[in-house]
């Protein structure tokens, strides 16, 4: 595929997904995985998960891994295309919403819809996590994931510590 076509392909994917982006971008992971790994074959699950990890150790809003997927396919142009495509529709919607803020805030349906959607977005997040875990190379990755999950749950430590621990443990275990 030519670069121009790939950029359009990515732009189309993210503009579509941006309409569905309720409760963060993590619920979008199953659809992104389907696109980049399963359908287009542009990267492996390990690379896909690696980009998400890389974005977490860097500062910034955690949507930036979306830019890395774009970068992987088409360089800087791909990164910018992905980022602008996921942001464009929300940008326009928010400019409109800002002007009708008080009305939306008072609308009782807002609360009901959000409550109703919460279990669905969380379910989609789980599906995304399971996709990434299915890509784990062996039992050592599962062990690391289990240890760090227990730490996230049981302590107030900053997640960066455990992600750093994952890097060190990966080297020590020769994963």
């Amino acid at each position: 595929m030519k670069t121009g076509d790939q950029l359009l392909d990515i732009a189309f994917l993210y503009v579509m997904l941006s309409f569905l982006c309720i409760g963060g971008t993590i619920p979008l992971i199953p659809d992104m995985h389907r696109f980049f790994v399963e359908s287009r074959g542009l990267m492996t699950t390990t690379e896909f998960a690696g980009y998400i990890a890389l974005a977490q150790i860097a500062p910034g809003p955690n949507i930036l891994y979306i830019a890395l997927f774009g970068y992987h396919v088409a360089g800087v142009a791909g990164a910018l295309t992905a980022l602008f495509a996921i942001s464009f529709v929300p940008f326009v919607l928010m400019v409109i919403v800002t002007r009708t803020f008080t009305r939306l805030q008072a609308n009782p349906w807002r609360e009901i819809v959000l409550r109703g959607l919460a279990p669905v977005t969380v379910g989609l997040m789980f599906a995304g996590c399971m996709l990434l875990m299915r890509g784990f190379p062996d039992w050592r990755a599962w062990l690391l994931a289990a240890i760090s999950f227990a730490v996230y749950l049981g302590t107030q430590w900053h997640p960066l510590w455990m992600i750093g621990f994952g890097a060190v443990a990966g080297i020590v275990l020769g994963m």
Binding site: A53, M125, F126, L132, F136, W142, G164, V168
Partner: peptide, 21 residues
């Protein structure tokens, strides 16, 4: 190796975020 290890702990952070959310 470092990347594979990081991906594992980062994935479990997503899982933790899902539980919390």
């Amino acid at each position: 190796s470092a990347m594979t290890g990081m991906a594992a702990t980062a994935t479990s952070y997503l899982l933790y975020m899902s539980v919390k959310m």
